[in-house]
Design a protein around this nucleic acid. Structure first.
Lengths: 199, 199
DNA sequence: CGATGTTTAGGGCAATCGTCCTACGATAGC
DNA sequence: GCTATCGTAGGACGATTGCCCTAAACATCG
């Protein structure tokens, strides 16, 4: 097996373990076991644990970009695209109730560790933030698009946090519906399913 | 110095360190150094690290109860009390931007560690949830008091999460104002400052 | 085939982890 | 002054941490 494939595999496993158990609680040994490598051999692929973290953040960066691009293509309207974002709360609810939001929990942990990469982790949020702001701008809300985007990002974070604490399916669905209603109220000219189309 | 005073001091320091650096990242040695005790002597006061965690959660439990009781006494109306809750986001914004919400981040970490005390940590949220629900019930919203309470708790969690990631003072103030407006809209009969009193 | 460069396993490194024990200083009652 | 109890200091314990080295297996190519 080539080094780049192995490296990729390490990052895949590390990504999952960092999400499920946190960065600090995941050791070289844990990753090595799941990848099927010997502990000591890690040094060949990654000099330090922080290097793995950087690679994981970079991987998430590209994955998020790909997801946003897919929504950009699949959804017909900006409002539909925002709806796609909101709905990951329902799609991923099982994982969220178990381990929280992958980005939010990582940012929190790195902030507490005062880790050098905490700014890079926050950049993952910025990807969503800027993308959402572009959607709101397309909905004739150019002046407050940033604030609206931050607001919906904040709501999804809050839902994820309480979902982890309470494991309440109904709460998630209720808040998602509330976000959709809020979205509809913010952009009454936007076309949404189950709503009358503007003339 | 008596054992109970020392024990109390340990819990105080552990509470702060768990908040600032997380539970897992805080070692016996860290706590001992800040308290001014030798590492080994910890066994006399706490058999295990989990025991310290339990004591910290219990301490937070009583502190929160005291805070809620104080709001119950100081604020004149249920709406004013809810406002008191929302405003801790502004009062504690410096610490929140540095280390997040003490409860939310603890629940997230314990969930990832699959720790036995994760349910106890979630009970801290329940204290706020039930208290807020009582306030909404007093505002003639008995039927959906639970959902409203959970909604405002979710919002404060979301604000705390993004505040930690972005370190944005204006965002916090904006969202707090938005929560107050929402509160006003939910309970139009409630008396709030800077608003016309009902006839 | 032999030579060359890549990837691997295995283990050692000092440090730190949570836990536990024992011996000592202080205090108080008899 | 003697003894018993309380609180502490200091360090040992096995395990695990992140990190690093070495030697062998590997593939590739002249």
């Amino acid at each position: 097996m080539g080094a780049s494939e192995t490296r990729q595999q390490i990052v895949d496993v590390a990504d999952r373990l960092f999400y499920e158990h946190g960065f600090n609680a995941t050791s070289f040994a844990n990753i090595a076991k799941d990848v099927g490598l010997s502990r000591g051999n890690f040094y060949y692929h990654f000099k330090t644990k922080d290097e793995i973290l950087d690679a994981v953040i970079a991987r998430r960066m590209t994955n998020i970009r790909a997801m946003l691009d897919a929504w950009e293509q699949d959804a017909e309207s900006p409002a539909e695209r925002i709806r796609s974002f909101v709905h990951i709360l329902i799609t991923n609810r099982t994982k969220i109730m178990a381990h929280g939001c992958p980005i939010g929990t990582l940012c929190n942990e790195l902030a507490k560790l005062d880790h050098a990469a905490k700014g890079d982790a926050a950049r993952l949020f910025s990807l969503f933030h800027e993308w959402l702001a572009r959607q709101f701008a397309a909905l004739e809300r150019e002046t407050d698009a940033d604030a609206l985007a931050l607001h919906i990002l904040m709501r999804s974070q809050g839902v994820a946090a309480l979902a982890t604490a309470f494991h309440d399916d109904d709460f998630i669905c209720r808040e998602v519906a509330d976000m959709e209603a809020w979205l509809q109220a913010q952009c009454p000219t936007a076309s949404l399913p189950n709503s009358s189309q503007p003339a």
